[in-house]
Design a binder for these strands. Structure first.
Ligand code: NAD
Ligand code: NAD
Lengths: 229, 229
DNA sequence: CTGGGCTCGATACTTCAATATCGATACTGA
DNA sequence: TCAGTATCGATATTGAAGTATCGAGCCCAG
C-alpha cells in the first residue's frame, strides 16, 4: 500500500477536531524547523499546546508520517505532510467582499500566506470606497468581481459585508463559480451543495467566555491543562 | 423547585456545544420579538439554523424555560433567560490591548453590545498611536491600564497585539486583576487558574475550510462542528 | 554489547454530543 | 364537543472524540 492510498483512506474518517488542531502543530513545527530541529516528539508538541501526547500522536497519524521511537517525528516531513493534507502547499487565491472595519483588518493581515491563503482582490459596493487604496489593495466595484474571479483563478471568497447584504453578496460569489466562502457575517448562507461555507462567529467564542466567567468552577488557561508537573 | 435552582443545576452539566449555539438562537429570537411574535417552536428555530429540532429543545432546556405543546416557547422569556444564562443581561466592560489592524476592527464593531460586551478603553505600546483617536476611543499608553481597569471596574481584556508581545501584555492584564482574556493572538497564554482565557484562532476555521475543499464528498452550507474544550 | 528508558502505534475503555423514539399535552377545526 | 396533530419533555441508542493502557522499537549510557 502506497503512502498516498493510506493517506486518502485515513482522510475519509478524519474528525474535524483533529483538523482544527493541525494549524497549531504546524506553527510550532515551523518554528522548530527554523531552529534546525530535525525531530520532535509528540510529547513535546503536546506540552506546548496543553494536550495529551496520545491526542497529538493520533492527530499526526492522519498525515501518514511515521514517528520513530525515542526520536519522535521528522519535523520537515511532517510540515510538508500537514501542508499537503490541508491543501496549504500552494496558497489558495481569495477575493474579499466588504472593505469595511473587519475587511480592512483581514486585508492588512500578514499571516495568511502561512495558512495557505492569498487575498488577491477587494470589492465593495460603496462608491466612496471604490477606487481607493486599502492596505495595498485597490478596492473594486462588485460588478467587476465575476470577471476578476474567472480571469484570476480565484477559489475563495471572504465575506465581510453587513448582515443584510450577506446573502446577496454570497450569491454574486456563487455565480462567479467560487468554490468556498469564508463567512464572517452572522447570516446562515444558502448556497448550492458544491460550495463550501465556513462560518466564523465571534459571538460563539464570546458566549463561551461569558459562560465560563459565570461558572464558579471554571478553570483558567486556553484549555484543560493535563496534569501538573 | 424554583426556576433558579433548576437553572443552576442544569448549568453544571452544560456542554460547550450548546453554549456556542445560544447566540444564534438569541439573534433570531430578538428578530422575532421585534416582529411582535410571542411564541416560537423549536422546529422553526431549528429550520433557520439547519439543526435538528431535538437539539434545539435540549439546548433551550438548560435555560429552564418551559415550552408549551403545539405553541412553542415564549419568545421574550426565552431571550431574558438566555441573556441571563450567558451573563449578557448587563454588558461586561472590556479594554482592548493592541490598537492595530484587528484592534481597530473590533473597536469599530457596533454589534458587541448585543453580545454583552462594551469596550471602554484602548491601549497600545506604540508612541505614534498613543493619544490618537481611533473609532471613537482615545488610545492610551499601556502604563495607564492598571489604574484604568481598577477605576473602571473592567472585567475583560481583548488581546490583539502581535504574537511576540502577547504573553507580556497578558501579564499586564492579569496583574490588573482582569477576570477574563479574549485572546486573538496565536499564543497559548500562561495565566493563573482564576483567569479565563478564550482563544480565537482564525487558522482553525481556515483549516476546516481548506480541508473541506479537498474532501470530495463534503456538503455545502455552514455547520458548527463541536470543538474541544 | 547490553539493559534502561523514552517514545511510538494499536487497542480497549470512557465520556459526551447527536440522533431516534415515545407518551403527554393543548390548540385547531370540523 | 372531540378527533387530529404539531409540539413538548424524557429516555434510549448511536456515534465520535478523548483517555488509558500495553507491547514493541530504538537510542544511549554504562
Ligand atoms: N468589525 C468587527 O470586528 C466584526 C466582528 C465580527 C463580525 N463582524 C461582521 O463582519 C461584517 C462587517 O463588519 P464591519 O464592522 O466590517 O462593517 P463595516 O460596515 O465597517 O463594513 C462593511 C463593508 O461592506 C460594504 N458593503 C455593504 N454592502 C455591500 C454589498 N452589497 N456588497 C459589497 N460590499 C458591501 C460597505 O460599504 C462596507 O465597506 C458584519 O457582518 C459584522 O457582523 C465584524
Ligand atoms: N489582522 C487580522 O486580520 C488578524 C487575523 C487573525 C489574527 N490576528 C492576530 O491579531 C494580532 C494583531 O494583528 P494585527 O494585524 O492587528 O497586527 P498590528 O501590527 O496591525 O497591530 C498590533 C498592535 O499592537 C501594538 N503593540 C505591539 N506591542 C504591544 C505591546 N507590548 N503592548 C501593547 N500594544 C502593543 C502595535 O503598536 C500595534 O498597534 C496578531 O497576533 C495576529 O496574529 C490578526
Amino acid at each position: 500500500m502506497t503512502n498516498d492510498t493510506l493517506s486518502m483512506e485515513r482522510m475519509q474518517r478524519t474528525g474535524l477536531s483533529c483538523v482544527r488542531r493541525l494549524p497549531a502543530y504546524l506553527q510550532l513545527l515551523r518554528a522548530l524547523r527554523a531552529e534546525g530541529r530535525e525531530f520532535v516528539s509528540g510529547t513535546v508538541l503536546a506540552r506546548v499546546h496543553y494536550l495529551e501526547p496520545v491526542i497529538v500522536r493520533k492527530d499526526l497519524a492522519i498525515t501518514g508520517v511515521m514517528g520513530k521511537p525515542r526520536l519522535g517525528f521528522p519535523v520537515n516531513e511532517l510540515i510538508l505532510a500537514i501542508e499537503k493534507f490541508l491543501g496549504w502547499d500552494r496558497a489558495a487565491r481569495a477575493v474579499l467582499v466588504g472593505a469595511g472595519n473587519l475587511g480592512a483588518a483581514l486585508l492588512g493581515y500578514q499571516g495568511f500566506e502561512d495558512f495557505g491563503l492569498r487575498i488577491v482582490g477587494a470589492f465593495d459596493a460603496d462608491p466612496r470606497k471604490i477606487g481607493r487604496e486599502m492596505k495595498g489593495h485597490r478596492v473594486l466595484p462588485l460588478q467587476r468581481l465575476p470577471g476578476f474571479v474567472a480571469r484570476g483563478k480565484v477559489e475563495l471568497g471572504i465575506l465581510t459585508v453587513p448582515a443584510p447584504a450577506a446573502q446577496a453578496a454570497a450569491a454574486v460569489l456563487v455565480r462567479a463559480r467560487i468554490r468556498g466562502i469564508w463567512n464572517f457575517t452572522s447570516v446562515r448562507l444558502q448556497v448550492p451543495p458544491e460550495v463550501v461555507v465556513q462560518k466564523e462567529d465571534l459571538a460563539e467564542g464570546l458566549a463561551v467566555l461569558s459562560h465560563r466567567l459565570r461558572q464558579p468552577g471554571a478553570q483558567g488557561g486556553d484549555s484543560v491543562p493535563p496534569r501538573q508537573v
